[in-house]
């Protein structure tokens, strides 16, 4: 289940502001997004695309496993700085992925989640986060575990006991790699353009056609 994007309801961001939002001139500096889950789940990952949010705090509501009636709020991410400098563009629109190990508390039995977005700088007219996903599915996740070839690098002892009559592996490797790269250069130049042949192995040959 961890690989699939968890079903959830994401509410529209609510500004925290004193007075009437429409008549006040000042822009809100905090938005709150509520996320609710139909059933308790373990949050492994929170991913989203930032849009000019400088700091993020995430609180989760957990249901106690022993007393299902008991619910408590805990902070799992506190004032995470998404933009190194709130006044400048840096990292303002980056994709962010928060994993379990970055969270401050255990994230099991979560029934709802509240995200606090802060932007102290008045430079930006609006800020939010986009494409919020809880436990997103694996399409962009790196492969878990290493491939065999990383686990099977030859050990040093084996390399020391190599036959003396071998050609210089460094030089052989360098040449072979260049040959490999050249092949890739050729492949990367391949285009989808064609000269527009429709026939298969000369089946449109005049002589052949005249017989059929």
């Amino acid at each position: 289940m961890a690989q699939d994007s968890a079903p959830c309801t994401i509410r529209a961001p609510v500004p925290l502001q004193l007075g009437d939002g429409k008549s006040e001139l000042g822009r809100p500096g905090v938005y709150v997004i509520d996320v609710t889950f139909p059933k308790p789940l373990i949050v492994n990952e929170i991913s989203f695309k930032n849009f000019y949010t400088a700091f993020l705090t995430v609180r989760i509501q957990q249901r106690s496993s022993t007393h299902p009636r008991n619910k408590r709020w805990r902070t799992c991410v506190r004032d995470l700085q998404l933009m190194p400098n709130p006044h400048t563009e840096d990292s303002a629109q980056e994709y962010v992925s928060l994993h379990e190990n970055q969270m401050l508390c255990a994230t099991d039995h979560v029934i709802s989640m509240r995200l606090f977005l802060r932007q102290p700088s008045p430079v930006w007219t609006t800020f939010s986060i986009e494409d919020l996903q809880i436990n997103p599915n694996g399409r962009q996740r790196p492969q878990k575990g290493f491939s065999w070839w990383l686990n099977h690098l030859p050990p040093k002892e084996q390399l020391r006991s190599l036959s003396k009559s071998l050609p210089n592996p460094e030089r052989v490797s360098s040449e072979v790699q260049q040959m490999w790269v050249l092949t890739e250069v050729m492949r990367s130049n391949q285009s989808s353009a064609s000269v527009g042949r429709f026939d298969v192995d000369g089946c449109y040959d005049m002589n052949l056609l005249s017989y059929t």
Binding site: Q143, S147, L150, P154, L159, L162, L166, S173, W180, R187
Partner: peptide
């Protein structure tokens, strides 16, 4: 394979001096 970036790492590791040396040694 162009569509699988990790495959380049794999291919590259095969052509590294270490792996080549071991392969050549085994061939001998």
């Amino acid at each position: 394979d162009l569509s699988v970036p990790a495959s380049y790492l794999e291919a590259g590791s095969k052509l590294g001096p270490d792996c080549l040396a071991v392969a050549m040694d085994r061939a001998l």
